[in-house]
């Protein structure tokens, strides 16, 4: 198609210099280094590969789902035209139309955010990891709302006042920045390994070029993870559009100012969540490391 196939905002979102607090998180690497299980390039490579295959994949799925929910392209259609069909495509409307669509869909989305956030909670057994994820999500959303102001991001902050999980904030920010779900998934997969890699460079004094070589070797896995995540999200998106967003849009249409502090977000649908089937790969060692890190007397990173 003729639409641009790449979005430069993706580079900003994935850049470790994005001022969103990411530099303070090692994704379990500091605890693994303290435990001696990550100590050199081969053990770091294994750590990164395992992290990507588990929490990286789950993060990519949540980010893709959040991006699909938030992308004005997904919401600008009417309730009768589910957006699932173009979930993986771009085709952005004009900025003005985006603004109108975003404002309209923001109210309809509140239930969608709550539901997706609950799915992230259910996939994060470790309280330390949940807290780290929410702190990062809160900081990212704070930053993103200033860089890419959008009613959709305001709505996410409102729906999850304690701080949305990081991949959800990342996906929503990607959507607000005009990225496609697969790009959001790629950014999530990428940051799931770059954070620990950078931390290992600092803590172990590894050759930064050698570590970047490891990351380069992971590039095909990152791409595969992103496309797996995008494919996994499509059925859930169709369901959430019909069960959560469309009714929300109808409410917003009948009561234009319904999106206020006085109208609490609708509670999640009592039926099975749209995102129930998303991957839920667990990494028991990361859970144990996250909890051990929290109790360490000496730590440089938040997580």
């Amino acid at each position: 198609m003729s639409a641009p196939s790449l979005n430069a905002a993706l580079l900003l979102l994935a850049d470790s210099r994005l001022p969103a607090g990411g530099h303070g998180h090692s994704g379990g690497a500091e605890a693994a280094i303290a435990a001696g299980t990550v100590r050199d390039l081969p053990t770091l490579a294994a750590f990164l590969r395992g992290r990507l295959a588990t929490s990286g994949l789950v993060s990519a799925c949540l980010a893709a789902a959040a991006c699909a929910l938030s992308a004005p392209a997904a919401g600008s259609g009417t309730a009768s035209a589910p957006a699932g069909d173009d979930a993986g495509e771009r085709g952005m409307p004009s900025p003005a139309a985006r603004g109108r669509a975003a404002a309209g869909v923001a109210g309809g989305l509140l239930g969608g955010w709550t539901e997706l956030d609950a799915e992230a909670d259910a996939r994060t057994a470790s309280p330390a990891q949940r807290e780290a994820s929410r702190v990062q999500g809160r900081l990212l959303l704070r930053t993103a709302r200033r860089i890419w102001p959008s009613p959709v991001l305001d709505g996410l902050a409102e729906a999850v006042p304690e701080g949305a999980h990081h991949p959800i904030a990342l996906g929503a920010a990607a959507g607000a920045a005009g990225c496609a779900p697969e790009e959001a998934a790629l950014a999530a997969a990428y940051t799931s390994v770059t954070g620990p890699a950078t931390a290992a460079v600092r803590l172990l004094g590894l050759d930064p070029v050698a570590v970047h070589r490891l990351l380069a070797d992971l590039a095909p896995d990152l791409e595969r993870t992103a496309s797996t995540a995008t494919a996994a999200v499509t059925p859930g998106l169709e369901q959430t559009v019909s069960t959560v967003i469309a009714p929300g849009l109808e409410r917003a249409a009948t009561a234009p100012s319904a999106h206020t502090a006085d109208s609490p977000p609708p509670s999640p649908a009592p039926t099975a969540s749209a995102w129930a089937e998303l991957p839920a790969h667990s990494a028991p060692a990361l859970d144990l490391l996250a909890e051990r890190h929290l109790r360490a007397g000496l730590r440089l990173f938040v997580s």
Binding site: L18, P19, H23, G24, H25, R142, A199, L203
Partner: peptide, 21 residues
């Protein structure tokens, strides 16, 4: 207390998100 991941200057200058929070 804010942890700065080995980079105290980053946390006050380049990426102030955690401190602002």
């Amino acid at each position: 207390a804010v942890q700065t991941g080995c980079c105290p200057h980053t946390a006050i200058r380049d990426d102030i998100a955690a401190n602002l929070d």
